[in-house]
Design a protein around this nucleic acid. Sequence first.
DNA 1: TTTAAAATCATCCTTAAGTATGACTTCGAT
DNA 2: ATCGAAGTCATACTTAAGGATGATTTTAAA
Lengths: 155, 155
Amino acid sequence: MRQFFLKYKSPILYGVSLAVLLFLVKWLELRFIIIDHSLEIYVGSIAVVFTVLGIWLAQKLTKPKKETIIVEKEVYIESAEFIQDKSQLEKLNLSKREMEVLELIAQGCSNQEIASQLFVSLPTIKTHSSKLFEKLDVNRRTQAVEKAKRLRLIP
Amino acid sequence: MRQFFLKYKSPILYGVSLAVLLFLVKWLELRFIIIDHSLEIYVGSIAVVFTVLGIWLAQKLTKPKKETIIVEKEVYIESAEFIQDKSQLEKLNLSKREMEVLELIAQGCSNQEIASQLFVSLPTIKTHSSKLFEKLDVNRRTQAVEKAKRLRLIP
DNA sequence: TTTAAAATCATCCTTAAGTATGACTTCGAT
DNA sequence: ATCGAAGTCATACTTAAGGATGATTTTAAA
């Protein structure tokens, strides 16, 4: 019994409301029909009552309108590819040549090998690496590699 | 003029609708009042019309329900966890001490620093690193680090 | 066009790194 | 108990790396 009521709650309420209203209408009809010139009041009341009923019905029956608010949530994904940290690169102000030398150092090349690969002399590479170490605030190539990887300058 | 209409669209529409309805009511009043026993139809029509009006009003006036949608924004980070390649480790047959030295080399430590950290002498570290390089088939610490990372011996 | 940064090369010097070899100890496995 | 691997330390030597300084040339920007 209770379950039945709960299940058909809305239709029952609507039915009861309608019955009450119709009774009210009939009663009003009897009351006001005998009083001349009061039809306007009667009709106005009906209008108001049924407008309210309509509003109530609409709120009961229609699905609530939705307004979407988009919130961005950061999801961390481990990536196979390497993404260079451009901001760090700017901060450190490494020149193109210094960056090349850094990459070759990271690959395990000796200064002589780097010099050969870049078609310059050994002292040139020494100068580059010295300035590189200064900018990275290190004093050994292994430290430079470790720091560069940590700062995401190289893979 | 057009802007004014757009701004007050809803109130204007409501006003017009109301005027039309009242006119309709008046007209119906005149039509039906002379026909006896048709008051019920008249009142019923009024009820239906204003119920519909109520529904329409409710839908116009109800505030939309806010719904938050979380959008995932991808942020790339380097892999959090490191998985050591045990099979490679076995193949290379690196001793415990050699592995420790390798890790410290990768961190950018000098031989002297490694010696101090492991509480042994500098020549000992040199011996270890020499054997390490031999096993890794390299001849510089930077190459050792590069190869060890490539073989997934160290992060 | 001038100027500053980048890139090049050089020299001198110091230190770190790497190679080779030998010796000693410890410890687990045969 | 013996053997070998691992670990330790030492010496001597060679080479690479790093630091300091100066000079020249390119190149890009003010």
